[in-house]
Design a protein around this nucleic acid. Structure first.
Lengths: 199, 199
DNA sequence: CCTACCGATCGGTAGG
DNA sequence: CCTACCGATCGGTAGG
Protein backbone atom coordinates (compact mmCIF):
# COMPACT_ATOMS: atom_id res chain seq x y z
CA UNK A 1 0.00 0.00 0.00
CA UNK A 2 1.22 3.50 -0.77
CA UNK A 3 -1.45 6.06 0.01
CA UNK A 4 -1.02 9.16 2.17
CA UNK A 5 1.89 10.61 0.27
CA UNK A 6 3.05 14.13 1.03
CA UNK A 7 2.17 16.97 -1.31
CA UNK A 8 5.74 16.92 -2.62
CA UNK A 9 5.59 13.25 -3.44
CA UNK A 10 2.22 13.72 -5.09
CA UNK A 11 3.60 16.47 -7.31
CA UNK A 12 6.61 14.31 -8.20
CA UNK A 13 4.33 11.49 -9.28
CA UNK A 14 2.32 13.89 -11.37
CA UNK A 15 5.51 15.03 -13.08
CA UNK A 16 6.53 11.44 -13.72
CA UNK A 17 3.17 10.75 -15.37
CA UNK A 18 3.40 13.81 -17.60
CA UNK A 19 6.97 13.01 -18.59
CA UNK A 20 5.92 9.51 -19.55
CA UNK A 21 2.94 10.88 -21.46
CA UNK A 22 5.25 13.20 -23.42
CA UNK A 23 7.44 10.29 -24.43
CA UNK A 24 4.51 8.10 -25.44
CA UNK A 25 2.78 10.92 -27.29
CA UNK A 26 5.90 11.67 -29.32
CA UNK A 27 5.67 8.18 -30.76
CA UNK A 28 1.93 7.55 -30.86
CA UNK A 29 0.24 10.92 -30.80
CA UNK A 30 -1.60 12.49 -27.91
CA UNK A 31 -4.74 10.42 -28.46
CA UNK A 32 -2.64 7.26 -28.39
CA UNK A 33 -1.58 7.90 -24.81
CA UNK A 34 -4.02 5.70 -22.93
CA UNK A 35 -4.43 5.63 -19.19
CA UNK A 36 -3.86 1.90 -19.13
CA UNK A 37 -0.62 2.16 -21.02
CA UNK A 38 0.68 4.92 -18.79
CA UNK A 39 -0.19 2.78 -15.77
CA UNK A 40 1.70 -0.23 -17.12
CA UNK A 41 4.70 1.87 -18.13
CA UNK A 42 4.84 3.55 -14.71
CA UNK A 43 4.07 0.45 -12.65
CA UNK A 44 0.95 1.89 -11.10
CA UNK A 45 -2.80 1.39 -11.35
CA UNK A 46 -5.06 3.14 -13.84
CA UNK A 47 -6.94 4.79 -10.99
CA UNK A 48 -3.65 6.07 -9.62
CA UNK A 49 -2.83 7.67 -12.95
CA UNK A 50 -6.18 9.25 -13.75
CA UNK A 51 -6.68 10.37 -10.16
CA UNK A 52 -4.09 13.10 -10.72
CA UNK A 53 -6.07 14.65 -13.55
CA UNK A 54 -9.69 13.56 -13.38
CA UNK A 55 -10.20 13.03 -17.09
CA UNK A 56 -8.11 12.06 -20.06
CA UNK A 57 -8.63 15.48 -21.58
CA UNK A 58 -7.19 17.16 -18.48
CA UNK A 59 -4.19 14.85 -18.77
CA UNK A 60 -3.79 15.82 -22.42
CA UNK A 61 -3.92 19.52 -21.54
CA UNK A 62 -1.37 19.06 -18.75
CA UNK A 63 0.92 17.20 -21.13
CA UNK A 64 0.61 19.92 -23.75
CA UNK A 65 1.29 22.57 -21.11
CA UNK A 66 4.45 20.77 -20.09
CA UNK A 67 5.60 20.65 -23.70
CA UNK A 68 4.96 24.36 -24.16
CA UNK A 69 6.93 25.09 -21.00
CA UNK A 70 9.77 22.89 -22.17
CA UNK A 71 9.86 24.61 -25.56
CA UNK A 72 9.95 28.00 -23.87
CA UNK A 73 12.88 26.97 -21.70
CA UNK A 74 14.67 25.40 -24.63
CA UNK A 75 14.26 28.22 -27.14
CA UNK A 76 13.16 31.74 -26.17
CA UNK A 77 14.56 31.68 -22.64
CA UNK A 78 17.89 30.31 -23.76
CA UNK A 79 18.41 33.11 -26.29
CA UNK A 80 17.00 35.89 -24.13
CA UNK A 81 20.49 37.34 -23.70
CA UNK A 82 21.16 37.77 -27.41
CA UNK A 83 20.77 41.09 -29.21
CA UNK A 84 17.12 41.74 -30.09
CA UNK A 85 16.06 41.42 -33.70
CA UNK A 86 17.75 39.35 -36.38
CA UNK A 87 20.55 38.06 -34.19
CA UNK A 88 18.24 36.76 -31.48
CA UNK A 89 15.81 35.32 -33.96
CA UNK A 90 18.51 33.46 -35.85
CA UNK A 91 19.71 31.98 -32.58
CA UNK A 92 16.18 31.09 -31.55
CA UNK A 93 15.52 29.16 -34.75
CA UNK A 94 18.96 27.61 -34.42
CA UNK A 95 18.06 26.32 -30.97
CA UNK A 96 14.77 25.01 -32.25
CA UNK A 97 16.46 23.19 -35.10
CA UNK A 98 19.06 21.76 -32.73
CA UNK A 99 16.33 20.53 -30.41
CA UNK A 100 14.65 18.67 -33.28
CA UNK A 101 17.68 16.44 -33.64
CA UNK A 102 17.75 15.58 -29.91
CA UNK A 103 15.60 12.49 -30.01
CA UNK A 104 14.58 12.92 -26.39
CA UNK A 105 12.08 15.55 -25.38
CA UNK A 106 11.45 17.25 -28.66
CA UNK A 107 8.85 19.72 -27.44
CA UNK A 108 8.61 21.74 -30.64
CA UNK A 109 7.89 18.65 -32.65
CA UNK A 110 5.39 17.50 -30.07
CA UNK A 111 3.43 20.75 -30.34
CA UNK A 112 3.44 20.60 -34.14
CA UNK A 113 2.26 17.00 -34.05
CA UNK A 114 -0.59 17.83 -31.72
CA UNK A 115 -1.47 20.78 -33.94
CA UNK A 116 -1.89 18.42 -36.89
CA UNK A 117 -3.62 15.74 -34.82
CA UNK A 118 -6.23 18.13 -33.45
CA UNK A 119 -6.67 20.54 -36.34
CA UNK A 120 -10.02 18.99 -37.17
CA UNK A 121 -11.23 18.43 -33.60
CA UNK A 122 -12.62 21.52 -31.90
CA UNK A 123 -12.19 21.61 -28.14
CA UNK A 124 -9.86 22.67 -25.34
CA UNK A 125 -6.83 20.80 -26.69
CA UNK A 126 -7.11 22.47 -30.07
CA UNK A 127 -7.60 25.83 -28.38
CA UNK A 128 -4.50 25.33 -26.24
CA UNK A 129 -2.41 24.43 -29.30
CA UNK A 130 -3.67 27.50 -31.11
CA UNK A 131 -2.72 29.66 -28.14
CA UNK A 132 0.78 28.17 -28.00
CA UNK A 133 1.35 28.70 -31.71
CA UNK A 134 -0.03 32.22 -31.53
CA UNK A 135 2.31 33.02 -28.67
CA UNK A 136 5.30 31.81 -30.66
CA UNK A 137 4.19 33.68 -33.78
CA UNK A 138 3.81 36.82 -31.67
CA UNK A 139 7.33 36.41 -30.36
CA UNK A 140 8.75 36.03 -33.86
CA UNK A 141 6.76 38.99 -35.17
CA UNK A 142 7.95 41.22 -32.32
CA UNK A 143 11.58 40.33 -33.02
CA UNK A 144 11.08 41.02 -36.72
CA UNK A 145 9.59 44.43 -35.97
CA UNK A 146 12.59 45.18 -33.76
CA UNK A 147 14.85 44.17 -36.62
CA UNK A 148 13.05 46.51 -39.01
CA UNK A 149 13.29 49.26 -36.41
CA UNK A 150 17.01 48.64 -36.06
CA UNK A 151 17.51 48.72 -39.81
CA UNK A 152 18.57 45.04 -40.00
CA UNK A 153 15.61 44.37 -42.28
CA UNK A 154 14.20 46.62 -45.02
CA UNK A 155 11.56 49.13 -43.94
CA UNK A 156 8.98 47.63 -46.28
CA UNK A 157 9.37 44.12 -44.82
CA UNK A 158 6.06 42.21 -44.71
CA UNK A 159 6.39 40.89 -41.17
CA UNK A 160 3.44 38.49 -41.33
CA UNK A 161 4.68 37.04 -44.59
CA UNK A 162 8.08 36.49 -43.04
CA UNK A 163 6.58 34.80 -39.97
CA UNK A 164 4.70 32.51 -42.35
CA UNK A 165 7.81 31.59 -44.31
CA UNK A 166 10.02 31.08 -41.24
CA UNK A 167 7.38 28.76 -39.84
CA UNK A 168 7.40 26.84 -43.11
CA UNK A 169 11.12 26.23 -42.82
CA UNK A 170 10.69 24.89 -39.30
CA UNK A 171 7.88 22.59 -40.42
CA UNK A 172 9.95 21.31 -43.32
CA UNK A 173 12.86 20.67 -40.96
CA UNK A 174 10.65 18.73 -38.60
CA UNK A 175 9.26 16.54 -41.36
CA UNK A 176 12.73 15.92 -42.78
CA UNK A 177 14.17 15.05 -39.39
CA UNK A 178 11.31 13.09 -37.83
CA UNK A 179 10.04 11.24 -40.86
CA UNK A 180 12.99 11.01 -43.21
CA UNK A 181 15.77 11.14 -40.62
CA UNK A 182 17.61 13.28 -43.18
CA UNK A 183 20.97 14.34 -41.69
CA UNK A 184 21.21 17.25 -44.13
CA UNK A 185 17.97 18.82 -42.88
CA UNK A 186 19.35 20.96 -40.02
CA UNK A 187 21.89 22.55 -42.32
CA UNK A 188 19.26 23.17 -45.02
CA UNK A 189 16.94 24.73 -42.47
CA UNK A 190 19.68 27.00 -41.14
CA UNK A 191 20.54 28.14 -44.64
CA UNK A 192 16.90 28.93 -45.42
CA UNK A 193 16.46 30.84 -42.15
CA UNK A 194 19.60 32.88 -42.75
CA UNK A 195 18.46 33.81 -46.23
CA UNK A 196 15.00 34.82 -44.99
CA UNK A 197 16.61 36.98 -42.32
CA UNK A 198 18.90 38.60 -44.90
CA UNK A 199 22.11 37.24 -43.42
CA UNK B 1 -30.10 -10.16 -46.85
CA UNK B 2 -27.70 -8.79 -49.45
CA UNK B 3 -24.97 -11.31 -50.26
CA UNK B 4 -24.02 -12.49 -53.76
CA UNK B 5 -23.34 -9.11 -55.23
CA UNK B 6 -21.67 -8.82 -58.61
CA UNK B 7 -18.00 -7.91 -58.85
CA UNK B 8 -18.99 -4.42 -59.95
CA UNK B 9 -21.21 -3.90 -56.93
CA UNK B 10 -18.49 -5.24 -54.66
CA UNK B 11 -15.97 -2.78 -56.09
CA UNK B 12 -18.46 0.06 -55.67
CA UNK B 13 -18.95 -0.81 -52.00
CA UNK B 14 -15.21 -0.91 -51.53
CA UNK B 15 -14.95 2.54 -53.03
CA UNK B 16 -17.71 3.82 -50.76
CA UNK B 17 -15.88 2.48 -47.73
CA UNK B 18 -12.61 4.11 -48.76
CA UNK B 19 -14.29 7.42 -49.50
CA UNK B 20 -15.89 7.40 -46.07
CA UNK B 21 -12.57 6.48 -44.48
CA UNK B 22 -10.92 9.44 -46.21
CA UNK B 23 -13.53 11.80 -44.81
CA UNK B 24 -13.30 10.40 -41.30
CA UNK B 25 -9.50 10.33 -41.37
CA UNK B 26 -9.33 13.97 -42.39
CA UNK B 27 -11.05 14.86 -39.13
CA UNK B 28 -9.77 12.20 -36.75
CA UNK B 29 -6.56 10.86 -38.21
CA UNK B 30 -6.05 7.51 -39.86
CA UNK B 31 -5.88 5.62 -36.56
CA UNK B 32 -9.17 7.19 -35.52
CA UNK B 33 -11.00 5.51 -38.39
CA UNK B 34 -12.48 2.49 -36.64
CA UNK B 35 -14.26 -0.35 -38.35
CA UNK B 36 -17.29 0.12 -36.14
CA UNK B 37 -17.59 3.78 -36.98
CA UNK B 38 -17.28 3.14 -40.68
CA UNK B 39 -20.01 0.51 -40.37
CA UNK B 40 -22.37 2.87 -38.59
CA UNK B 41 -21.66 5.71 -41.01
CA UNK B 42 -22.25 3.45 -44.02
CA UNK B 43 -25.21 1.58 -42.61
CA UNK B 44 -23.54 -1.81 -42.81
CA UNK B 45 -22.10 -4.37 -40.42
CA UNK B 46 -18.53 -4.37 -39.15
CA UNK B 47 -17.95 -7.73 -40.80
CA UNK B 48 -19.18 -6.29 -44.08
CA UNK B 49 -16.67 -3.47 -43.83
CA UNK B 50 -13.61 -5.39 -42.78
CA UNK B 51 -14.39 -8.25 -45.18
CA UNK B 52 -13.24 -6.05 -48.05
CA UNK B 53 -9.78 -5.60 -46.61
CA UNK B 54 -9.05 -8.33 -44.10
CA UNK B 55 -7.31 -6.16 -41.52
CA UNK B 56 -7.45 -2.59 -40.39
CA UNK B 57 -3.92 -2.01 -41.66
CA UNK B 58 -4.94 -3.12 -45.16
CA UNK B 59 -7.83 -0.66 -44.97
CA UNK B 60 -5.42 2.08 -43.91
CA UNK B 61 -3.11 1.31 -46.82
CA UNK B 62 -6.02 1.28 -49.27
CA UNK B 63 -7.20 4.64 -47.92
CA UNK B 64 -3.73 6.13 -48.22
CA UNK B 65 -3.45 4.76 -51.77
CA UNK B 66 -6.71 6.44 -52.69
CA UNK B 67 -5.49 9.75 -51.28
CA UNK B 68 -2.24 9.49 -53.24
CA UNK B 69 -4.20 8.77 -56.41
CA UNK B 70 -6.51 11.70 -55.75
CA UNK B 71 -3.55 14.03 -55.19
CA UNK B 72 -1.97 12.87 -58.43
CA UNK B 73 -5.15 13.55 -60.35
CA UNK B 74 -5.64 16.89 -58.66
CA UNK B 75 -2.10 18.24 -59.05
CA UNK B 76 0.48 16.71 -61.41
CA UNK B 77 -2.01 15.31 -63.92
CA UNK B 78 -3.94 18.54 -64.11
CA UNK B 79 -0.85 20.59 -64.97
CA UNK B 80 0.72 18.02 -67.28
CA UNK B 81 -0.03 20.24 -70.27
CA UNK B 82 1.88 23.25 -68.94
CA UNK B 83 5.40 24.10 -70.07
CA UNK B 84 7.99 22.00 -68.18
CA UNK B 85 10.07 23.72 -65.53
CA UNK B 86 9.18 26.82 -63.58
CA UNK B 87 5.83 27.41 -65.29
CA UNK B 88 4.53 23.90 -64.64
CA UNK B 89 5.86 23.85 -61.10
CA UNK B 90 4.23 27.16 -60.23
CA UNK B 91 0.94 25.85 -61.57
CA UNK B 92 1.35 22.57 -59.67
CA UNK B 93 1.88 24.31 -56.34
CA UNK B 94 -0.97 26.66 -57.22
CA UNK B 95 -3.28 23.68 -57.70
CA UNK B 96 -2.10 22.16 -54.44
CA UNK B 97 -2.74 25.39 -52.57
CA UNK B 98 -6.17 25.70 -54.17
CA UNK B 99 -7.01 22.16 -53.14
CA UNK B 100 -6.15 22.92 -49.53
CA UNK B 101 -8.99 25.40 -49.35
CA UNK B 102 -11.55 22.93 -50.73
CA UNK B 103 -12.79 21.49 -47.48
CA UNK B 104 -13.85 18.27 -49.18
CA UNK B 105 -11.30 15.68 -50.17
CA UNK B 106 -8.10 17.45 -49.33
CA UNK B 107 -5.74 14.68 -50.36
CA UNK B 108 -2.51 16.63 -49.93
CA UNK B 109 -3.43 17.55 -46.41
CA UNK B 110 -4.45 13.98 -45.70
CA UNK B 111 -1.05 12.65 -46.77
CA UNK B 112 0.78 15.26 -44.69
CA UNK B 113 -1.37 14.41 -41.67
CA UNK B 114 -0.67 10.73 -42.01
CA UNK B 115 3.02 11.52 -42.41
CA UNK B 116 2.99 13.27 -39.03
CA UNK B 117 0.76 10.66 -37.42
CA UNK B 118 2.98 7.76 -38.43
CA UNK B 119 6.42 9.34 -38.33
CA UNK B 120 7.21 7.49 -35.13
CA UNK B 121 5.52 4.18 -36.01
CA UNK B 122 7.55 1.95 -38.30
CA UNK B 123 5.52 -0.30 -40.55
CA UNK B 124 3.82 -0.53 -43.94
CA UNK B 125 1.77 2.66 -43.50
CA UNK B 126 4.83 4.73 -42.70
CA UNK B 127 6.66 3.13 -45.65
CA UNK B 128 3.80 3.96 -48.00
CA UNK B 129 3.76 7.59 -46.83
CA UNK B 130 7.49 7.83 -47.34
CA UNK B 131 7.13 6.45 -50.86
CA UNK B 132 4.39 8.96 -51.70
CA UNK B 133 6.41 11.90 -50.41
CA UNK B 134 9.52 10.69 -52.19
CA UNK B 135 7.59 10.42 -55.43
CA UNK B 136 6.35 14.00 -55.09
CA UNK B 137 9.82 15.28 -54.16
CA UNK B 138 11.21 13.49 -57.20
CA UNK B 139 8.65 15.18 -59.42
CA UNK B 140 9.52 18.60 -58.04
CA UNK B 141 13.25 17.97 -58.36
CA UNK B 142 12.89 16.86 -61.97
CA UNK B 143 10.95 20.01 -62.86
CA UNK B 144 13.57 22.15 -61.14
CA UNK B 145 16.36 20.46 -63.10
CA UNK B 146 14.41 21.12 -66.29
CA UNK B 147 14.11 24.76 -65.25
CA UNK B 148 17.86 25.00 -64.69
CA UNK B 149 18.43 23.34 -68.04
CA UNK B 150 16.12 25.84 -69.72
CA UNK B 151 17.86 28.76 -68.06
CA UNK B 152 14.80 29.76 -65.99
CA UNK B 153 16.80 29.17 -62.83
CA UNK B 154 20.51 29.95 -62.21
CA UNK B 155 22.96 27.22 -63.15
CA UNK B 156 24.23 26.96 -59.59
CA UNK B 157 20.74 26.34 -58.13
CA UNK B 158 20.78 23.89 -55.21
CA UNK B 159 17.86 21.74 -56.33
CA UNK B 160 17.53 19.74 -53.10
CA UNK B 161 17.57 22.93 -51.04
CA UNK B 162 14.82 24.37 -53.20
CA UNK B 163 12.72 21.21 -52.91
CA UNK B 164 13.10 21.51 -49.13
CA UNK B 165 12.00 25.14 -49.05
CA UNK B 166 9.08 24.68 -51.45
CA UNK B 167 7.87 21.85 -49.25
CA UNK B 168 8.11 24.13 -46.24
CA UNK B 169 5.83 26.68 -47.87
CA UNK B 170 3.26 23.97 -48.59
CA UNK B 171 3.41 22.74 -44.99
CA UNK B 172 3.02 26.27 -43.65
CA UNK B 173 0.03 26.79 -45.95
CA UNK B 174 -1.58 23.61 -44.74
CA UNK B 175 -1.14 24.53 -41.09
CA UNK B 176 -2.45 28.05 -41.67
CA UNK B 177 -5.47 26.80 -43.61
CA UNK B 178 -6.40 23.69 -41.64
CA UNK B 179 -5.63 24.88 -38.13
CA UNK B 180 -5.94 28.64 -38.24
CA UNK B 181 -8.44 28.91 -41.13
CA UNK B 182 -6.39 31.94 -42.16
CA UNK B 183 -7.89 33.37 -45.39
CA UNK B 184 -4.62 35.14 -46.21
CA UNK B 185 -2.66 31.88 -46.28
CA UNK B 186 -3.17 30.89 -49.94
CA UNK B 187 -1.99 34.30 -51.13
CA UNK B 188 1.03 34.18 -48.78
CA UNK B 189 1.92 30.73 -50.01
CA UNK B 190 1.66 31.76 -53.65
CA UNK B 191 3.90 34.75 -53.04
CA UNK B 192 6.51 32.61 -51.30
CA UNK B 193 6.45 30.02 -54.08
CA UNK B 194 6.82 32.67 -56.77
CA UNK B 195 9.79 34.18 -55.01
CA UNK B 196 11.47 30.80 -54.58
CA UNK B 197 10.97 30.10 -58.28
CA UNK B 198 12.43 33.49 -59.20
CA UNK B 199 9.20 34.85 -60.69
C1' DC C 1 -22.95 -8.98 -46.84
C1' DC C 2 -25.29 -10.38 -42.11
C1' DT C 3 -25.83 -12.14 -37.13
C1' DA C 4 -23.64 -13.49 -33.25
C1' DC C 5 -19.90 -13.73 -30.83
C1' DC C 6 -14.65 -13.59 -28.97
C1' DG C 7 -10.99 -11.61 -25.75
C1' DA C 8 -8.78 -7.22 -25.02
C1' DT C 9 -8.82 -2.63 -23.93
C1' DC C 10 -10.93 1.82 -23.46
C1' DG C 11 -12.13 5.91 -19.91
C1' DG C 12 -13.83 6.20 -15.64
C1' DT C 13 -16.01 5.26 -10.73
C1' DA C 14 -16.82 3.34 -5.89
C1' DG C 15 -14.87 2.59 -1.84
C1' DG C 16 -11.18 2.20 0.96
C1' DC D 1 -2.57 5.24 -4.45
C1' DC D 2 -4.93 0.36 -4.70
C1' DT D 3 -8.54 -3.36 -5.86
C1' DA D 4 -12.53 -4.33 -8.09
C1' DC D 5 -15.64 -3.21 -11.13
C1' DC D 6 -18.80 -0.65 -14.90
C1' DG D 7 -20.63 -0.18 -19.83
C1' DA D 8 -18.77 0.81 -24.31
C1' DT D 9 -15.93 -0.09 -27.99
C1' DC D 10 -11.95 -2.09 -30.18
C1' DG D 11 -10.23 -5.48 -34.21
C1' DG D 12 -11.46 -9.60 -35.78
C1' DT D 13 -13.70 -14.53 -36.59
C1' DA D 14 -17.22 -18.36 -37.40
C1' DG D 15 -20.68 -19.68 -40.01
C1' DG D 16 -24.06 -18.88 -43.15
Amino acid sequence: MSPRKSAIETAATRTRIIECALTLASAEGLEGVTIGRLATELGMSKAGVIGHFGTKEALQLATLDAAVERFRARVPVRVAGADPGVARLARAFGEWIDSMADDEGNAGCFITSVATEFDGRPGPVRDAVLAALASWAGYVAAELRAAVEAGDLPGDTDVDQLVFELNGVALAAEQAIQLHRDPAAPERARRAIDRLLGR
